[in-house]
């Protein structure tokens, strides 16, 4: 029996199915790669990104939200690596969100983890022409590295200081101090009896002082009563004297006021009174001095030749040209 197959229909069916499969594949691919569902951000990392490759996952608080689109050295700063992240547009990347490099367990594969930031912070705005930059936080390895470096540095300094403290000289001094302390302790032990005696004496002295203070208190009371008596006596006897003194003081004050007013009027301006007289006196003194000199000269000549007073016999020493 020979089947009747319509090869034309089979061919058409195959062609139609193939076309539909291809169309479905294109539709599926286009749907998944729809760029309109993603936004691009830049991240600059200043540490090694070993283990991170293009297409690596980008997680937002542990949720896959995109992938690393490209990796390159920052053309403006060779110390940084520039990453372009492709992240779903629904992802709430905020201005205080930070990107951190993390690793999957011990496999060495890395991904980018984005921390959400504060929910009240504004969303980060990015565009295809001007990509927003997500700030980075140091990775765990970097933090560990920095912390370990700091710890090692401090440990090294501590060891240096310890070495300096535990030098041979200090060790010897410490040993010497311990020996001295030992000797001192032994001596204190040997003086134990004397210390006990001293303490007993101190207690006795304290008791004596208490007794003495009681006696001083009695004496003070006696002195106080004597002073009260003295005060009463003095007030009784001095009262008339003080009254007389007060009256005298008032009279003296009145007299002083009169003298002061006279002084202010210039009645006793001794300076102006004396000035004129002083000037005249000075002139007289100058003239007296001249007269005194002349008299000295005359007396000197008489002393040299007393007969000149009567006979004028001596010849004076004439000056040049006389």
């Amino acid at each position: 029996m020979e089947s009747k197959v319509n090869y034309t229909l089979v061919g058409l069916f195959v062609l139609l199915l193939s076309t539909m499969l291809i169309a479905f594949a294109f539709w599926l691919g286009k749907h998944n790669d729809d760029e309109s569902h993603y936004r691009h951000y830049k991240v600059y990392i200043s540490e090694s990104i070993s283990g991170l490759a293009p297409e690596a996952a980008v997680k937002f608080n542990g949720v896959d939200v995109g992938l690393v689109e490209s990796i390159q050295i920052n053309p403006n700063n060779s110390e940084e690596v520039e990453l372009v992240l492709k992240i779903q547009k629904e992802t709430p990347i905020r201005t205080d969100s930070t990107a951190t490099l993390k690793f999957f367990g011990i496999t060495g594969l890395a991904f980018i983890e984005i921390n959400g930031g504060n929910k009240n912070s504004p969303l980060m705005i990015t565009s295809d022409t001007d990509l927003a930059v997500i700030p980075t936080a140091p990775s765990l390895i970097k933090r560990l590295d920095e912390t370990l470096s700091t710890v090692i540095t401090k440990l090294s300094k501590t060891l240096d200081h310890t070495n300096a403290i535990m030098s041979d000289e200090n060790t010897q001094n410490f040993s010497q101090t311990l020996k001295t302390l030992k000797i001192l302790t032994q001596r204190i032990n040997s003086y134990q009896d004397e210390i006990d005696l001293l303490l007993k004496n101190s207690i006795q002295t304290g008791q004596n002082i208490d007794q003495a203070m009681l006696k001083v208190g009695d004496s003070a009371s006696s002195v106080k009563s004597s002073m009260d008596t003295f005060k009463v006596t003095m007030s009784e006897r001095l009262s008339p004297t003080m009254k007389s003194w007060e009256a005298t003081s008032k009279k003296t004050n009145a007299l002083l006021e009169k003298i002061e007013s006279s002084m202010e009027r210039g009645d006793y301006d001794l300076k102006s009174i004396a000035t004129q007289s002083t000037v005249e006196l000075n002139e007289r003194l100058v003239q007296s001095r001249i007269l005194q000199n002349e008299m000295e000269i005359t007396l000197k000549s008489l002393r040299e030749s007393p007969s000149d007073l009567l006979f004028k016999q001596s010849k004076p020493n004439l000056g040049p040209g006389e």
């Binding site: 001249i290 000199n293 002349e294 000269i297 040049p320």
Partner: peptide, 10 residues
């Protein structure tokens, strides 16, 4: 002192 007079000294 010697010049405090009217003597003419040489």
């Amino acid at each position: 002192t010697s010049l405090a007079s009217t003597q003419f000294y040489y």
